[in-house]
């Protein structure tokens, strides 16, 4: 019988085994998300592990009004932000082409867009954005999250999601023009 993520999360409180399918489903996605946010592929593994441990330990606090994925992304997001604050390496670290391609391959929606555009230029420009602009574009285009999910992950109002995406996109365009 198929269980929804939210049901699995509730059952995890009673039995650890129900957490396994959630790990299997989200581990790689969360790692790719963290790696794109932090700009550090090797460290993203530890951050991902830490995010899942936190999610597991705090599973009883999961709010059923949220989607499980939004709640998990919020934890991952907070872990990534903590890492960035600690290491100040957000904009300095560059991905190798191999890693960039791997990250793009994990996100079919954006890879389609990037195929049409000058892919390398867009990827490089994205890395030059500040954390706030970058995370919202990551969630919109890489993770394909809805406005409500983005609002839940970033804990902002639903109404401000659209304008923020627009502003971040404008900034990305400027960077592309500048370096293009």
């Amino acid at each position: 019988m198929d269980y929804s993520d939210e049901e699995l999360a509730r059952l995890t409180v009673r039995n650890k085994k129900y957490f396994d399918p959630l790990v299997g489903k989200y581990a790689q996605k969360i790692r790719a998300y963290i790696a794109r946010l932090t700009g550090n592929w090797p460290d993203s593994e530890d951050i991902t592990q830490e995010a899942f441990i936190k999610a597991y330990v705090n599973i009883a606090s999961f709010n059923p009004k949220l989607k499980f994925s939004s709640w998990l992304y919020r934890i991952a997001h907070n872990e990534a932000v903590n890492y960035i604050k600690k290491h100040y390496r957000y904009r300095q670290v560059e991905f190798s082409d191999e890693i960039k391609n791997k990250l793009i391959d994990d996100s079919p929606a954006l890879s389609k867009i990037l195929e049409k555009e000058n892919a390398k230029m867009v990827r490089d420009s994205l890395l030059k954005l500040n954390p706030r602009d970058r995370e919202i574009l990551e969630l919109t285009y890489f993770e394909e999250k809805s406005y409500l999910e983005i609002a839940d992950i970033l804990e902002i109002s639903v109404n401000s999601v659209g304008p923020t995406i627009k502003r971040s996109r404008e900034k990305l365009k400027k960077i592309i023009k500048k370096y293009g």
Partner: peptide, 13 residues
């Protein structure tokens, strides 16, 4: 990840 949560327990509600 599984190894990481092996020895841990969820906090009570």
């Amino acid at each position: 990840i599984k190894k990481g949560i092996e020895t841990r327990k969820p906090k009570p509600y």
